[in-house]
Design a protein around this nucleic acid. Structure first.
Length: 203
DNA sequence: GGCCAGGTGTAAA
DNA sequence: TTTACACATGGC
């Protein structure tokens, strides 16, 4: 039985649902430190707003998010998100869609992890977020196949955990926090203080 | 200087 | 249906 014994409160730092959705795009294959720089710059010119981002030149948007990397494609992706966000009636409108996940996935630049991050952290929908860390840890523990697909991994967690937004949030946060420090890509978890069966995850 | 980071889309094999 | 590659910055 899997259980998050402890976890971070409010692990995804953001002042609003919209900011979280922007962060979900910016953090794609990118260190969160770089994302913070980009968000700080957006806030500094009061541009962390859907209409504002649509009104400014795309070149200007690229400049502002530059530190987060992939700035050309991310600027385009952010604008698609902004249009969608306003058309649907902001987060409440998106939440009320018959299938919000499918609608998000239909936007270019939003894949399963980005969509699920938005659903869980910005919209409060109980979907488990599978990321590279999750795949790595659980594969090393021998609990899931290394080549499992996104939906296979997600189904695994949905089957193991109570369908609870806070639990999903905390558990995912815990996985990321742990993996960042001890479950690196190259050196296997050799100096992980939690040992090979990782009691933070298994109980 | 190389590796890595809270992925996604596209185009070959 | 799988695999490879482009996209880009900044910290260690």
């Amino acid at each position: 039985m899997l259980l998050a014994a402890y976890g971070q409160q409010h692990w995804w730092p953001a002042d609003s649902a919209f900011e979280m959705m922007v962060g979900a795009i910016l953090t794609q294959n990118t260190n969160w430190q770089n994302v913070e720089k980009a968000i700080t710059q957006l806030k500094a010119v009061d541009a962390l707003d859907a209409q504002t981002m649509l009104d400014m030149d795309e070149a200007r948007l690229r400049e502002l998010i530059h530190p987060s990397g992939f700035f050309r494609q991310k600027a385009a992706r952010l604008r698609l998100l902004c249009s969608f966000y306003l058309e649907q009636g902001r987060e409440q409108g998106i939440k009320n869609l018959p299938d919000a996940r499918a609608s998000l996935l239909s936007l270019n630049g939003i894949g399963p992890e980005t969509a699920d991050s938005m659903l869980l952290y910005a919209l409060g929908t109980p979907v488990f977020v599978v990321d590279a860390y999750t795949r790595r840890i659980f594969a090393r523990l021998g609990l899931t196949a290394a080549d499992a697909t996104y939906s296979e991994l997600q189904e695994y967690f949905h089957a193991q955990l109570d369908k609870d937004v806070s639990l999903y949030k905390e558990f995912h946060a815990l996985i990321v926090q742990h993996a960042k420090h001890y479950c690196r890509v190259k050196p296997l978890c050799t100096h992980c203080p939690l040992g090979p069966s990782c009691p933070a995850i298994i109980s």
